[in-house]
Design a protein around this nucleic acid. Structure first.
Length: 451
RNA sequence: GGAGAGGUGUCCGAGCGGUUUAUGGAGCCGGUCUCGAAAACCGGUGCCCGUUUAUGCGGGUCGAGGGUUCGAAUCCCUCCCUCUCCGCCA
C-alpha cells in the first residue's frame, strides 16, 4: 500500500512512477475520496467533541456521582452556543432531560449518518489503494520485456559435453527418479513424484541451503504454516489483485501459501519492533502452491512449473535506510548457494514492467540448464520497501521512546528446489546416463553419483 | 467437537451505564534532595487518525466487529483467542 500522505502531497510524482510500470492509473478518484472523507471527518469530530461535552454535563446534571451548582451547568451549555430557555433549568432532572433531548436532536443522529458515510468512503479508498503497486526505485531500468532486464553479472562457464545433453525429464525417467505418470495419476497434470535418489536430492538441497543460510549467512530458521488466513495474503499484496493464482479452502478461511514470503511477512504483523532488533533475517523451507493457469508446453514441461513446489526462502525486516544494501546482501546469499553447487548463473536486475506488484527493486538469479537449453529463474530477490509493512502494520522504534516507523521488507528465494534439481541433473549429467553429485552436496546426499 | 472460566495500557490489576477525561501499583523517563547513589517526594510516560506545527487542540482505541443509548470497558448479538475438564487424534 502506498502512503496516502505522499499521494496527497505529490500526486504527479506518484502517477509518473506508476506509469513507468505500465499502470495507467489516475489518482483523481483517490484524491477526491480522500479529501471528501477528511472534510467529513473533521465535521463529525467536532460534532462528537460537542456531544462528549454535553454528555459529561448530563452526568453532572443527573448528579449520579456529584452535586453541581445548576446555574454553573446552565452557563456552560450557553457557552457551547445552545439556547437554554428560562424555565428549563427549574430542576436538575428537568435540565438533564433537556440536555438528553438536545443531544439526540442536534448531534447524535447527524453523527451516526456521517459516520456511516465516512466508513463507506474509507473502505472505498482502501480498496482502491490495495490495487496500486509499489513505486519502483529510481535505479530500476525501464521497459516491460524480458530483453529490458539488465544482466549485472554472470558466474561460471556452461559445461561442454561430448554428447548432446539431455533434458532433466529424460534423465529423471531413465534413472527412475522422477515419475511423471504416477504424479498425474494422483493429482492430474503438472504434478510429479520424486523417487529414490530424486527425492533424496531435493531433500539434500533443502538441508544444505538451510544449513548455509543459518550457519554462515546469519538467518534464523523458521518452520511455518503452509495454510494462512486471507488477511495474510492481502498483507503481502497477493490479494486482492492476484487471487486467481491461489488455492484456497472453500469451507474455511485457509489459503495455501504461494511462497513462504506470505507467512514470513505476517510473522510480525501488527507489531512494533523495539530498538536494536533490526535487521531481522529469517529463512524457511515451505512447499508453495500456485494455480499457474497456462497452457501445457515448453514453459511447464518436466519439473519447471508445477502446481506444488518446494522452496527455501530468505526474508529480512530492515530499517528504511538500510534496505537497499540489505538487498545486495540477500542476492549475494542466494548466489553463494548456486556457486557452491557449481552451477553457472547470471544475475539480472528486473526492468520495471517485469517486477512483482509489491517490489520496488528486484534481482533474478537464472541458472543455466544445458538440457533444455535455457536460463531458468531459480531466485527472485526483492526490496518491497514499506509497501508490505503498511499493509501489515509492521513498525519499528528507531530510539527508545521515539515514534514508530514502518520497516522495509525484503524477500528472496534461496532457492527454488525444482529448478535447482533441473540444473544439477542437466549440468552434471554424464555420457553413460548417470549424474554426478556436486562435491559440496555429497555429504548430504551420501553418494557421489546417481546411477 | 462438548461443557465451564476468562481476555483491560510495557507488566500486574481494579472498574460492571454518567467527575473514568481508564483507579491503584510496578517498570521506564525527567526533576527535587545528595559529593554521588539508593530511598523518599513531585511530574511525565501507549497506539492510530485529523488539524496545527514551537508547543498545542480534537477524535478514536479496554480481544475483533456490529447493536441498544443523549452517553458503553460496563448491557445485547456475532466472531476470534487463551485456560480447565471431557471427547478424538500423529
Amino acid at each position: 500500500m502506498l502512503d496516502m500522505q505522499l499521494i496527497r502531497k505529490s500526486p504527479e510524482e506518484v502517477e509518473q512512477a506508476l506509469s513507468r510500470r505500465g499502470e495507467d492509473t489516475s489518482l483523481e478518484l483517490i484524491l477526491h475520496l480522500d479529501e471528501t472523507r477528511r472534510k467529513l471527518l473533521q465535521e463529525t469530530e467536532s460534532m462528537r467533541a460537542n456531544q462528549n461535552q454535553l454528555n459529561r454535563l448530563v452526568g453532572r446534571a443527573k448528579g449520579t456521582h456529584t452535586t453541581d451548582d445548576l446555574s454553573a451547568l446552565v452557563e456552560q451549555v450557553r457557552l457551547m452556543g445552545y439556547d437554554v430557555g428560562p424555565n428549563i433549568a427549574s430542576t436538575q432532572e428537568h435540565f438533564a432531560d433537556f440536555l438528553v433531548h438536545l443531544g439526540r436532536e442536534t448531534l447524535s443522529r447527524a453523527i451516526d449518518e456521517q459516520q456511516a458515510d465516512i466508513r463507506r468512503l474509507g473502505k472505498e479508498l482502501e480498496s482502491l489503494l490495495l490495487y496500486l503497486p509499489n513505486l519502483p526505485h529510481s535505479s530500476v531500468p525501464s521497459g516491460t520485456e524480458d530483453e529490458d532486464n539488465v544482466t549485472v553479472r554472470a558466474w561460471g562457464e556452461p559445461p561442454t559435453f561430448s554428447f548432446t545433453p539431455r533434458p532433466h525429464y529424460e534423465i529423471g525417467e531413465c534413472l527412475d527418479i522422477i515419475d511423471f505418470e504416477r504424479g498425474v495419476k494422483l493429482s492430474g497434470t503438472r504434478f510429479y513424484v520424486l523417487k529414490g535418489a530424486g527425492a533424496r536430492l531435493q531433500r539434500a538441497l533443502i538441508t544444505f541451503m538451510l544449513d548455509i543460510h543459518t550457519r554462515e549467512h546469519g538467518y534464523t530458521e523458521a518452520y511455518l504454516p503452509f495454510m494462512v488466513k486471507q488477511e495474510c495474503l492481502v498483507g503481502t499484496g497477493s490479494l486482492p489483485r492476484f487471487g486467481d493464482n491461489l488455492y484456497h479452502d472453500a469451507e474455511e478461511d485457509y489459503w495455501l501459501v504461494p511462497t513462504a514470503e506470505v507467512p514470513l511477512t505476517n510473522l510480525h504483523r501488527n507489531e512494533i519492533l523495539e530498538p536494536g532488533t533490526l535487521p531481522l533475517s529469517y529463512t524457511a523451507y515451505t512447499a508453495c502452491f500456485r494455480r499457474e493457469k497456462m497452457a501445457a508446453g515448453k514453459e511447464t514441461r518436466g519439473l519447471k512449473r508445477g502446481h506444488q513446489f518446494d522452496k527455501v526462502e530468505m526474508y529480512k525486516f530492515t530499517k528504511p535506510d538500510h534496505s537497499y544494501e540489505e538487498l545486495e546482501k540477500l542476492v549475494g546469499d542466494a548466489e553463494d548457494i548456486v556457486r557452491r553447487l557449481g552451477i553457472p548463473y547470471r544475475v539480472r536486475m528486473l526492468c520495471v514492467g517485469e517486477m512483482g506488484f509489491q517490489s520496488a527493486k528486484s534481482y533474478d538469479i537464472d541458472v543455466w540448464a544445458p538440457g533444455v537449453g535455457e536460463w531458468l529463474e531459480a531466485s527472485s530477490c526483492s526490496n518491497c520497501t514499506d509497501f508490505q509493512a503498511r499493509r501489515t502494520h509492521i513498525r519499528y522504534r528507531p530510539e527508545p521512546g521515539a515514534r514508530p516507523q514502518f520497516v522495509h521488507t525484503l524477500n528472496g528465494s534461496g532457492l527454488a528446489l525444482p529448478r535447482m534439481v533441473i540444473a544439477i541433473l542437466e549440468n552434471y549429467q554424464r555420457a553413460d546416463g548417470t549424474v554426478a553429485i556436486p562435491p559440496t552436496l555429497q555429504p548430504y546426499m551420501g553418494t557421489e553419483v546417481i546411477s
